[in-house]
Structures are given as structure tokens and as C-alpha cells.
Design a protein around this nucleic acid. Structure first.
Lengths: 168, 168
DNA sequence: AATAATTTTCAGAATATTTTGAAAATTCAA
DNA sequence: TTGAATTTTCAAAATATTCTGAAAATTATT
């Protein structure tokens, strides 16, 4: 396979898989492109490479920045804004953990709490209360796990955990 | 809050949050409804409760079955098919882990492998190879973790892990 | 068999999401 | 300042996803 072809395949795969996780395809493709690029790219270069509009590029660059996955890089003498991706995949993983925790788990835990509070004294709400508590427990576990992953020093623990999973 | 109102809120919350994980809203709502119900429900009851069409109900019941989250229950003397959800949330979690692993991680790992094989001898593909390997490592870790969670005996280990995350 | 009940399918409708592209806003240089 | 370069915004278009509902298929009953 040609190098170019392999790069395109990588970008394409990344874009496709991401939609299953509820992440915008273009956002993932831009991310993949920047991950592969050893120099910073500007909006025009991204438009050209991925064949998408300026508005689309701009919007998704903003999103990627808000996820903490890419950064603006100002190049001396250049007027345009350039963007680079965080290349350390462990940092990327931690950052995604952090954001998904904040954006998804915290709201879920809050919602479960609200419901629990609203029914806690009602005898006839036993069934609902049990499910809410169970889901709260699983979500709390997921939350703790992501919190752990998102810590600076987590990598050794994560790999320890991984090793644990290899055997029985 | 009324019990009915709390139940509806639960169903609604579950439906909303699920879309962020790339899961169909209606599918999640049906799941939530069945989680809350202590008796098996048939298609008409689900249509009525969630105010959705027969086709929609049918399709999403199939999907939930394919995810292993609900089961058909035949009631003696009844012509209609009834459905019950697996109520043990740990089992549910394990089942979801199993399926996401199969549907999402395995394809990603395969794709990374294909790309790696296609470029492994090319000196000029160093950068791409590094990213592919890094992503493969993270995906493998996620894969192992889900594999662990999906095991029958995993619960104690999962809680141990959770406890680890509480402290430093 | 014929009929009635139930489930499944799937084309078209409805809805939601993403993308475009051009106008508006902003930023920088002269 | 003015104006050119660049970025941002956002209404409308394009696309993707979900949902409906009625017809077709299947299953059970008489």
C-alpha cells in the first residue's frame, strides 16, 4: 500500500469508528489528520486535504480545542492560525476521559440524584429506587475509573490493571 | 414528585443520555421502560406507554435482543409475545461491555493491524506507524478492560479497582 | 383450508445532524 | 484610519437517521 493511501485509510477509519461513539465524523478526521502531521496545519490546508468547507473546518477546530485535543500555534511572521494535535496518545486518552466524565457522567449522576431525592420516602417507589441506585453505582464506578485514567500519574496503574486482565 | 412523573423522568433521562453514546433514543427508552416494569410487556403496551409506532417498537425490540439486554417471554395461554429486561445491572453492564467490544474495538484493532501490515517495511512511514501502534495499545487496553468487565467473576475485581480510585 | 391475530418489513415522511458558503466580524499591517 | 487578510457566524441546503403505518409475511385457531 502507498503511504498516502495508508494515511487516508487511517483518517477514514478514525472518522467512521468515531460516529459509533457519538463523535462527529469530520471532527475525528481533522483530529486524525493533525495527529499524523508533524507540522502545524492551517484551515486552508485542512480544507484542501479533507475536501470540506471553511465553516466546517472552523467549527470542528473549535470543538477539538474545547475537548483539549488540539492547540492553536502561532507561527512568527505568519498571519494565519495554525493547529497542532497533542501527540502523546496517553495524554489524549486522559483528556478524553476527563471530558466525557464532565459532559456525560456528571449529568447522569445528577439526574439519578434528583430522581432519588424526589421519591426517597415513597414506599411504592421501591422498584424505581432500586434501579436508580444500581445505575448510580455503575455510573459512579465508571466515573471513578475515568477520574483515575484522567490523572497525570495514572499510566502505571492503568498498565497494571491491563496486566491483571491478561491472566485469569 | 409523583411516582409516574419520576418514572417518566427516568425514561426520558436514559433516552437523552444514550444518544451521546451513539445509541438510539427509542431503544434506550424501551430498555428503561422494561427495566422499570416488574411484569413482561408486549408491543402494544410499549407503543401505548411511549407513544410510538408498532414498527419502531418492533425494530428496537429486535435490537435490544441482539444486544442481549432483553428477552422474549412466552406467557401460557397468551398469543402475543412479551418482553422482559435483564434486571441485574451488573449483568447488563457486562453484556454492554461484551457487545461494544465485539462491535467497536475488534474492528478498530483489525483496521490498525491492516494498516500496520501494509506499511511495516516503509522507512518513510515511521510517523504513521507510531500513531497506529499507540492507538493499538490504547485500544488493546480498552479491549482488555471490557473483556475483564464482561467476565462472570469480574464484579469483585471491578469494585476493587473502584476502591483503588478513591484514594491517591 | 380458511380466518383471525400477530409480527415483520420497508418505502416514504419526519426529524435531526452536518455541511456549505457567503456575509459579518475581527485582526493585523501599512 | 483604511483596507486587505483571516476568522467566525449562521441561514439554508444536503445528508443521515429515525419513525410511521400500512401491506406482506408469519403464526396460531377454528
Amino acid at each position: 500500500m502507498e503511504l498516502k493511501e495508508a494515511r487516508d485509510r487511517f483518517i477514514h477509519t478514525w472518522g467512521t469508528l468515531s460516529t459509533q461513539w457519538g463523535i462527529n465524523r469530520t471532527m475525528s478526521q481533522i483530529h486524525a489528520l493533525l495527529l499524523l502531521s508533524d507540522k502545524a496545519l492551517n484551515a486552508d490546508e485542512i480544507m484542501e486535504e479533507l475536501q470540506i468547507s471553511r465553516g466546517n473546518v472552523n467549527m470542528n477546530l473549535r470543538d477539538l480545542i474545547s475537548w483539549g485535543l488540539i492547540f492553536k500555534q502561532l507561527i512568527p511572521g505568519e498571519r494565519k492560525e495554525y493547529f497542532v494535535a497533542e501527540k502523546d496518545i496517553w495524554k489524549v486518552t486522559r483528556q478524553i476521559s476527563r471530558e466525557r466524565r464532565r459532559r456525560e457522567l456528571t449529568p447522569l449522576l445528577d439526574a439519578m440524584n434528583d430522581i432519588r431525592n424526589s421519591i426517597k420516602d415513597q414506599e411504592e417507589a421501591r422498584g424505581l429506587l432500586k434501579i436508580v441506585n444500581d445505575i448510580d453505582a455503575v455510573a459512579s464506578l465508571a466515573d471513578s475509573t475515568l477520574e483515575l485514567i484522567s490523572r497525570e500519574e495514572s499510566q502505571w496503574l492503568v498498565s497494571t490493571f491491563a496486566r491483571l486482565t491478561q491472566k485469569g
